[in-house]
Amino acid sequence: MLRIAVIGAGAQETQNAGSRLRGALLEACGAGSAGEPLQTAQAVAFVSREAADPDAVARALSARQHVLLATVIGSPPQQLDRLSQLASEQGVLLTITRPDRALPSRRLIRQQIENGKLGDIGLVRICRGEPASKIDSSSPRLPSALISDIDLAIWLVGRAPETAYAVQRNGQQAEQRCIQVHLGFSGGGMALVTHTSVWPSQDAHQSVSVIAAGGAAYSDGHQNRQLLFSNGSASAPIADEGPVLTALLSDFVDQVQSGGSCASHDPSWRQLAIVVAAVEQSIASGDAVPVECP
């Protein structure tokens, strides 16, 4: 049994994931925790941006614990390089992934792409409306959800973009913000990724479309909603896609148990960091910015 300390998820969420996993025991730990569960764990899963403190990750790696960094990357590439190097030195696995990739809808789309059913990707279109309350209006950084969506677009296209253009517009309230990211890929592919803070609702909307040479995939919040009639008005509740944490940890457990090493981890986080930097540069300059991924 692989003992995994989970940092950044609640006890109930961790327990739910644990009940669905084979070959692993989970224990929820608070950020900054130094207690017994963390010290005796063979692996540590950091599953929120707040929890993914680079020092804490480094401590876990130094303690020869495998690490799952399942969060949108907020760290600069150099920092991640150092962590990767440390994992290599310690002979443990460092897996960096983004939670949205584990959503069943995203996995199904990716599976269809990998199976060749859709053909070459021409356009990935992601539109997200997020509750304004989630926006940190004091931060100049891109919202986590937008970074996650940029990652998703790159993951679905399957290669890094060669150019980025991005625009930001603010509404009357500081939290009202619309950021549009336009990515161009070699060979003519493109991605439009839009993030808008929805005001004043706590509700959210998201759609992902993949337009490909042989077909298309639509994961549309519009189509996925139910209708609720109550007290003379209608609303459109959405059933969420289930416990993402389970899928993330399941993959991680498989990797650890199959003896995966740090050398095998997905390097796309580095591409993502470069693309995010280009997007931020484009917003600041008002011009298209070439993306130079290694």
Binding site: R125, G129, G171, Q173, A216
Partner: peptide, 28 residues
């Protein structure tokens, strides 16, 4: 933003996906 294309008959069972999303300062 606008995404537009003649994307092939295989891409949709009913002629194509045509959507609008409008965000206002009081709703979407």
């Amino acid at each position: 933003s606008l995404a537009i294309g003649r994307i092939g008959a295989a891409s949709h069972s009913s002629g194509g996906d045509i959507n609008l999303v409008v965000h206002g300062d009081r709703g979407t």
